[in-house]
């Protein structure tokens, strides 16, 4: 379809739209209010619930630090606390940044640059988040064993076989996982970089 033909189709469609205007005052006012409520919900639930869980677990570990009575449990405990504090910040920070884009003041170009850069940073931090989550999965095991059961996972476990099997499996899983994360992000990151480069070209 040539551009001229596209313009003709577009113009015909525009005429049809003009003929069937149906918005009422009430609908418009309701839309602004409903959307306002929905916007609050969008931010509120998933992100805040995740953050509350992470911070609750971090506080629980901090209150039970005295139970982590050997160096490796203590180190694992501190790594877990730092990870649990950092993880929610990664996504909340991006959401708040995106919400602060000046939609009415910015030009399309400025918004596109700001949004694409923000999205790139978000993807990088999510990638970091996946790795941190993976680390957390392991470091929290000796910590929870100590805090919940009062047992040292390494010295007081009856059989070492579960650990011997778990470690190689974890390493294999980690390699597969890393490859998947890399594959998921590389494509979209490249196209974002091309777009930013194009927008920032000197006119």
């Amino acid at each position: 379809m040539e551009l001229e033909e596209m313009q003709a189709v577009w113009s015909q469609m525009s005429d049809q739209i003009e003929k069937q205007k149906k918005l009422t005052d009430k609908m418009i006012i309701m839309m602004t209010q409903e959307q306002y409520r929905k916007k609050l919900n969008k931010i509120a639930y998933p992100e805040i619930i995740g953050a509350v869980i992470c911070y609750s677990v971090a506080i629980l570990i901090l209150f039970n630090l005295e139970k982590l009575d050997n160096w490796y449990s203590l180190v694992s405990g501190l790594i877990s606390v730092v990870t649990l504090l950092v993880l929610p910040v990664l996504s909340l920070k991006w959401i708040s940044k995106m919400r602060n884009i000046n939609i009415s003041g910015n030009s399309y170009k400025e918004t596109l640059i700001e949004y694409t850069k923000g999205k790139q940073r978000f993807k990088k931090s999510m990638k970091l988040g996946y790795y941190l989550g993976f680390v957390l999965m392991f470091v929290i095991m000796p910590v929870s064993s100590k805090i919940i059961k009062g047992k040292d996972l390494f010295t007081e476990t009856k059989s070492i076989w579960p650990i011997v099997i778990a470690i190689p499996l974890a390493i294999i899983f980690f390699f597969v996982f890393t490859k998947w994360v890399y594959k998921s992000y590389t494509g979209s990151m490249n196209s974002a970089e091309v777009l930013i480069k194009e927008l920032e070209e000197k006119e």
Binding site: K42, I95, M98, I101, I103, S104, N106, S107, Y108, T111, L112, Y115
Partner: peptide
Amino acid sequence: WMYRVGLNTAITRLKK
């Protein structure tokens, strides 16, 4: 103004 706000909203919308 409408095109500017409309287009900016469309690209920054947080997709759910």
